[in-house]
């Protein structure tokens, strides 16, 4: 029971943070709220027993991403368009027929997702397809074959070594792209 209350509280604050980040016109505040969003997400991953993902979410989402967004803001502007002209002004738009269509699309998508989620296996169900395919082989032989206790590391670094090399290359390419776009070399 306590677990359900914790889940509801965390998901509630997650939605609050997401809505606040979208609504805010001050991008500095939006960045800080996004950091809080990532921190709550990290706690949710921990509740779901995905500690490696939680660790990454906390260090990358709440830590580095916020700092890099702040650095980007220092080069651009602090607010969205119109923020500096009237920081206190609330944009109130009247009813438009287009909004009703958007609402219908959103409600229909939500209803479809809820309908689809009823067919999903329960959380942690040992008979779920994802737990009966390659997972048993990893659990049985990962330590024997790789000599690594943490299954996540064994899968990432050994069984999926190509993928991880590709991911590292993607990050490296991002660094190169930033250099190409922003670095000024002295003539």
């Amino acid at each position: 029971m306590g677990g359900i209350i914790l889940d509801i509280v965390l998901l509630f604050f997650l939605v609050v943070c997401a809505l606040a980040a979208v609504r805010m016109r001050d991008l500095l505040s939006a960045t800080v709220v996004l950091g809080a969003y990532s921190l709550i997400m990290a706690v949710i991953w921990t509740v779901l027993n995905a500690v490696d993902v939680a660790f990454t979410e906390a260090s990358v989402g709440a830590g580095i991403t916020s700092v890099l967004l702040l650095a980007t803001l220092s080069r651009t502007r602090r607010g969205e368009a119109g923020f500096e002209d009237a920081p206190r002004r609330r944009v109130v738009t009247g009813f438009r027929p287009g909004n009703l269509v958007l609402l219908l699309v959103a409600v229909f998508t939500f209803a479809t997702l809820v309908y689809g989620s009823t067919d999903l296996p329960d959380f942690g169900d040992p008979e779920a397809p994802i737990h009966t395919h390659v997972a048993p082989r990893y659990i049985e032989s990962a330590y024997k074959e790789t000599g690594v206790i943490n299954l996540v590391t064994a899968v990432l670094a050994s069984y999926r070594g190509y993928d991880t090399l590709g991911e590292a290359t993607v990050i490296f390419t991002a660094g190169l792209a930033v250099i190409v776009l922003l670095r000024r070399t002295r003539e």
């Binding site: 890099l68 650095a71 220092s74 080069r75 660094g175 930033v178 922003l182």
Partner: peptide, 11 residues
């Protein structure tokens, strides 16, 4: 290395 590069170049 990539993280400090991105920070240096954007900040």
């Amino acid at each position: 290395g990539v993280m400090i590069t991105i920070f240096f170049e954007t900040a």
